[in-house]
Amino acid sequence: MPNTRWIRRLAPVLALLSLIAFARPAYAMPPQMHIMEGFLPLQWAIFWWVVALPFWAIGLIRMRRLIVEQPEQRLLLGLAGGFIFVLSALKIPSVTGSSSHPTGTGLGTILFGPFIVAILGTIALLFQALLVAHGGITTLGANAVSMAIGGPLIAYYLVWLPLRRVTRIGIAVFLTAFVADLATYLITTTQLALAFPNPVAGFAGSWFTFAGIFAVTQVPLALAEGVLTVLIFKALQANASAELRKLGVQEA
């Protein structure tokens, strides 16, 4: 069977993940998605805003160009944005007894690349900051860097582009969404560890403990998000193949 090739290739990855999943650190900051309003010191709030700004600028330029050059893609753009809206509104229970939510950024990353997703994700973050009081304006830069920019950027360049022609498209889609979700939480943790280093273990010490807890909470969620993204992507292949081809996502 040709399929066993994938099982063999994925086996080391799965082994590593389960290793992380069962390493239970004594103390760690729980993984999270949004840093609440006021919970970053001013200098860090400004720093992450400055990091986010160029990505927003490029994202706006690329989004404008896409809408002007391919106006028929607006529907897919709305779909990708809507997917982020739905998934980031779903608080899903995790094994640590808390809740967390998926990001939904993987789909848009595959369709439009990380820069346009930076805009789509930031719209969802703004909605949550202004209306639901989740996240905030001072922490918008940091939250955008983790969910809307960093996760998609890592997933796009380290997973989607290298894998899309090498593996079956479903596998590439799954891993892209999975990594975009996990990377988001790792970046948030890094941001918090930088702003609030553990007084005993310091930044590096606490970061590795954070990473351990991450896996427990977030891996099942990221797996579920990966599977859902594959289902949506397959449905798009069946119904919107013209758009996918024009975006260069699918071979002509």
Binding site: M29, P30, P31, Q32, M33, H34, I35, M36, F39, K91, P93, S94, G97, S98, S99, S100, H134, G135, L192, T217
Partner: peptide, 9 residues
């Protein structure tokens, strides 16, 4: 109790 991780953090 499945409190949001944002709050736990």
């Amino acid at each position: 109790t499945f409190v949001g991780t944002d709050n736990v953090g």
